[in-house]
Design a protein around this nucleic acid. Sequence first.
DNA 1: AATCTCGTCAACCGCCTTATC
DNA 2: CGATAAGGCGGTTGACGAGAT
Length: 312
Amino acid sequence: MGRSPCCDKLGLKKGPWTQEEDQKLLAYIEEHGHGSWRSLPEKAGLHRCGKSCRLRWTNYLRPDIKRGKFNLQEEQTIIQLHALLGNRWSAIATHLPKRTDNEIKNYWNTHLKKRLVKMGIDPVTHKAKHETHLSSLGLTKNTAILSHMAQWESARLEAEARLARESKLLHYQTKPSSHHHGFTHKTSLTPWTSKTNQGNADQQQQQLESSTSTVSFSEMKDLSAKTEFVGSSTCLSLIKEPENDWFNSTVHEFEATEMAGGVDEEGRSFSAEKNETVKEWSGGGDCSNYYEDNKNYLDSIFSFIDPSPPMF
DNA sequence: AATCTCGTCAACCGCCTTATC
DNA sequence: CGATAAGGCGGTTGACGAGAT
């Protein structure tokens, strides 16, 4: 409870990291893993708080970080995911391997948000500001459907988190040196529920990603064009996996309930709060039918928020 | 050349959740 | 079961550089 007092200690350095500090941190983690961030600085010979070390590692020094400009695909993914998830940067980051939540957040705030504003789109709601004009194009309805999708995505992420927690109970090894150089994976977990996902083994990571998070939104777009789009395609892939019994039951809960509570009168989605997500889904039975009916929607929403060149 | 303005992004802050005792 | 520690997240800040004046 309460915030960590570690940074309040006097004599701890703040501000930009020097090369020497980076080297110390890297060397220590490569040899020992990070283990407890709290005790790491002292062991590594750094006059920093553990929090600062963790941040430096996760946002900068981690070996799997891709730096530099975001490509168009990444930009689109961010915009689309933001429309679905809002400012859940860590959740968005799980869909962009090698990008950190901090980097995505910065990029959103400095680039993408401004673009949307220029396009006349509210970057918070992803609604066009001139609703009357857009309603004639059917986009108000689309916004409502988008909200439903947001619920699906939130529910899916929640489910992933639960899967991770269960997996962790079975497989988690606390010994940091058992990981690859103490490397901390950011898994494809929802951030607001599973905040301690460190130490997942690579295999587990692959299982998670392969079963739940591998379908990109561009792929979803393709799916919507070519086949019946069935909500979160990743949710369906999980249904087919017999080992995910708990998830099957979760999905069946979805399917057994009604879709009444998805979107409020203004087209906003209800929040998918932790542990309430599934219960809040009380709407329209089979999600596949729902999305099948609206399979053209994705095309419109993707083209709606596509950063097409002339707009910039 | 000096100053100002603006954009970028690394890092910090404060709050929340989870784990542990 | 409550208190505390630790980790994680999102919001915000501020240093820095580039371009404009």
